[in-house]
Amino acid sequence: MNQSDSRLILKAEDLKQHYRVKQGFFKPEAVVKAVDGISFNLEKGKTLAVVGESGCGKSTLGRMLTMIETPTEGKLAHLGEDLLALSADAQAKLRQKIQIIFQNPYGSLNPRKKIGAILEEPLVINTKLSKAERKEKALSIMAKVGLKTEHYDRYPHMFSGGQRQRIAIARGLMLDPNVIVADEPVSALDVSVQAQVLNLMMDLQEEFGLSYVFISHDLSVVEHIADDVMVMYLGKVVEQGTREQLFENPKHPYTLALLSSTPQLSPEKRRTRIKLEGELPSPLNPPSGCAFHGRCSYANDRCSSETPMLRLDSEENQEQGHLIACHAVEENRIESLVEGAA
């Protein structure tokens, strides 16, 4: 137990982010539950993937983990220290250890700054290194991510998308973080470049012992890079487990639908398409009970009235912690479908 504790880098407990939204002068304020009660453990050198459609709260989660936004409720512990209880100064120190890479490398780099200045900015703000030391550090990290020395004096527009994402990754590494939150790092890239960036991320993970929180909607990328996977739907986790559990033995109807909607190259791997009707409901006016019940073909009265809790899967070894929030799974109502899909 103690050993796993020492490897634990980031621990989130029941994180919530609720936004208050004004709807009009006379209307009452509404509450958008962008993230509603998320818990996970992230160990050193591991990758936690967060999967879901747009609007499910995965990016908000990323912003909370990096403390860009303060969670409205919940606990976030980095190496045992509660990030939310600390003073602003101490928080700023710890924040250096959790860095973020954004989705769009065309928007996340300041076009008026040279690469050198972009990379050194975190050092200027957070450390007392001299100019020469900063440059040395920047050049060494650039070499690590596969950028050349001459790129130091260039502007972002002179780079291709893949190279820009390398710059963004380099910037994330400048302060020697131990957690990197990667918010859709490869979705703006072409497949061949995507492979280069994914390889780079895996190499860096090995070299620096980084932990990743990998936010993505692309299941084939997630299947490749993740150790643990969390599937989100409308701010809540619907299924959580190791990569093997999720991809080989998916249980939640939403996970099944996601997997079956992902196009597959080889005909053997294709699953019977589970058609999902409709779209993600508005978070301003979420459905009662299970948020997914309107689109789920296994929903019954209980699903529309009672919110399912995340529970350990009863069939498997309880130690492994495959969590599912679904009444139908609990009541064994979808057993036939799981076999059909496999």
Binding site: S54, H217, A257, S260, S261, L276
Partner: peptide, 11 residues
């Protein structure tokens, strides 16, 4: 578009 919507549109 998202994968589930992509599947709907392609179908």
């Amino acid at each position: 578009l998202d994968v589930t919507i992509q599947a709907q549109i392609i179908d």
